[in-house]
Amino acid sequence: MTTRRDFLAEMGASTAAVRLAGIGSILTGSIAANAQSSRPITMVVGFPPGGGPDLVARALAERGRRELNQPIVVENKTGAGGRIALDWLRNQAADGSAFCLTPAAMLASYPHVYKKLSYNPGDFDPVCKICHYHVCVVTRSDAPFSTLKEFVAWAKATKKGTFGVPSRGSGTDFIGNLLSNAEGLGLEPVLYRGGPQLTQAVLGGEVDLAINLSSNFIELAKAGKVKILAVSTAARSSFSPSVPTLAELGYRDLVFEESIGIVAKKGTPEKAVLRMQEAMHKAMEDAIVRSALQTLEHRPDFRAAKQYGEDLAAASERYRTFVQKTNFQPLD
């Protein structure tokens, strides 16, 4: 089982990230003045176009391009709950031409839940954290229940119930499992390739609940096509103040916020990592980028490499606890 100390060692947060913090004086002047090539930088995302991570990457890529004076091309390499993108990055040259924007689960949870993982956290160097997001539990508008309490009663009475998630072993999956365990429901998890596919599934009645980033359901909820039953924030979200939290509904273990950040292949030159880190930091100050995050109901929380590595280590501990509480069986 990966511990916090193991995770920090694997990610290099106590070594490589510290070195990053000390080389700020290497780069002077504007980032654009230090651009080394007009060759595009690839920003890979493990989820389909239109989902939260994809939209965050595209907002950052446009502003980052201007900071770097170099194109940033977002590529979606989907499947396996985000693992394919990280596996792709692991096999690229460590030359600063490729990065991955990913939720923390792919680095912090998957080492705990997969028997065989094609990568490990030590294959990557943290670059920076971008933001936090929360998740929500939704159902279609014509479902035979309108609150989470009503869903629990319905599931117990009918002895059935399913919840859809975009990745097994992620925070969304653990929320569904912990809810199921707390109520003795035996809910069946159903995996989808990404947020857009999961959204269509819940709209079409393929699953009773969908658990995913709130950004996938904002407009649908406004249009009355889905009902948001609960959110995972500690206190009611300012984005959805009328929606109860899972904690206030009695599920105190289900307070959950996840980070999205950027990593590079292990061994990428310090200068290239710092250059991207600074470009993303400046991009985060742009009004258009912040507006995009606001629209997605993501909370900006930029952290440099060392802090991001420490946050990933803390997330790894949180997921280890989830695994223990749910008696989660390792995945192939």
Rank of each mutant, 00 (worst) to 15 (best):
M11D: 07
V152F: 00
Q294C: 12
D311T: 01
A57R: 06
S259E: 12
P166A: 07
F47H: 15
F256C: 13
L117Q: 02
K227A: 06
V273I: 14
G29W: 01
K159W: 12
N216C: 00
T158C: 07
K160M: 00
E75N: 09
L68Q: 01
E75V: 11
R193L: 14
L101F: 03
L107F: 00
G169H: 03
E150V: 08
I23W: 09
T295E: 12
S238T: 14
W88Y: 12
I26F: 03
F99I: 00
A157Y: 11
V45W: 05
E257M: 15
V138N: 01
P53N: 03
T162H: 02
D95V: 01
K149V: 04
E317M: 13
T295A: 12
P103K: 05
A223C: 11
E310V: 02
R90A: 15
I228M: 12
K325H: 10
A21S: 14
A279Y: 02
A314W: 11
G161M: 03
I218K: 15
R193S: 13
R19Q: 11
H281A: 15
G261M: 06
H134R: 04
E258T: 02
A201C: 07
K266A: 04
D95Y: 01
P48M: 03
Y133S: 08
P121N: 05
R39D: 13
A105S: 12
T268N: 03
V263M: 07
V226T: 13
D332T: 08
I130P: 00
V207K: 07
G169K: 07
I218G: 13
L89D: 13
C128I: 10
A283Q: 06
F163G: 09
K282G: 14
T268G: 03
G52N: 14
T147E: 06
I218V: 15
K271A: 11
A143K: 05
R83W: 09
S97P: 02
I228L: 12
G171T: 04
M276R: 03
A234E: 10
T158L: 11
V152Y: 02
L27R: 02
R299F: 05
A16N: 14
L254A: 14
M284K: 11
R65T: 14
G224D: 02
K271T: 08
F328A: 06
L198Y: 06
Q36E: 12
G169I: 09
R58H: 08
A108C: 05
L179H: 04
G52M: 11
D311E: 06
R299Q: 10
T139L: 04
S141M: 13
I41K: 05
P300R: 01
Q329A: 15
K115Y: 09
